[in-house]
């Protein structure tokens, strides 16, 4: 192997792929010469790349109607439940409003929540970037 061949006979490094038996190993010569010949001869593509690209898995693309269809299905399901159990649906809406909508929202609370969300987002982004490096 050319990269590991030492020009000074008898001083081959231990890590060298050349055999340590003699300064000029005839088998090394044969293997190196063979490798040199084959490395110098480029194998023409001849449609190989096209075949590989054709064999790659098809990217998973979801149909355009999928998202609206799911939203519509959820809407239908919720409407169905509301119609079937009107009092329960009314209770859920009333309780939900009481929990979220009827809470007094102060300016400092909003600022605090925004700061918390921003800090969390930036921390997550910095962590993701560090991982991908």
């Amino acid at each position: 192997m050319n990269r590991n061949m030492n020009p000074i006979p008898g001083t081959e490094p231990i890590a060298s792929n050349s055999a340590p038996t003699s300064p000029r190993d005839w088998l090394d010569d044969i293997l190196n010469s063979e490798a040199r010949d084959e490395r110098s001869s480029y194998i023409a593509d001849a449609g190989f790349t096209a075949r590989v690209m054709h064999a790659l898995p098809v990217p998973l693309t979801l149909p355009a109607w999928r998202k609206p269809a799911i939203v519509a299905l959820w809407g239908v399901a919720l409407a169905g439940i509301s119609l079937a159990l009107p009092s329960a649906a009314l209770d859920v809406v009333r309780e939900g409003y009481r929990l979220i909508g009827a809470q007094p929202v102060s300016l400092s609370g909003m600022v605090g929540a925004l700061l918390l969300a921003g800090t969390l987002s930036w921390t997550a982004a910095a962590y993701a970037l560090r991982e991908s490096e």
Partner: peptide
């Protein structure tokens, strides 16, 4: 998900990989 970029990688390395496997 740039397949053209990957095709270029295949083009660059196909000879050495095929030669290695032929060996």
């Amino acid at each position: 998900d740039d397949r053209h970029a990957f095709a270029e990688l295949v083009r660059r390395h196909q000879s050495s990989v095929r030669a290695c496997l032929r060996k």
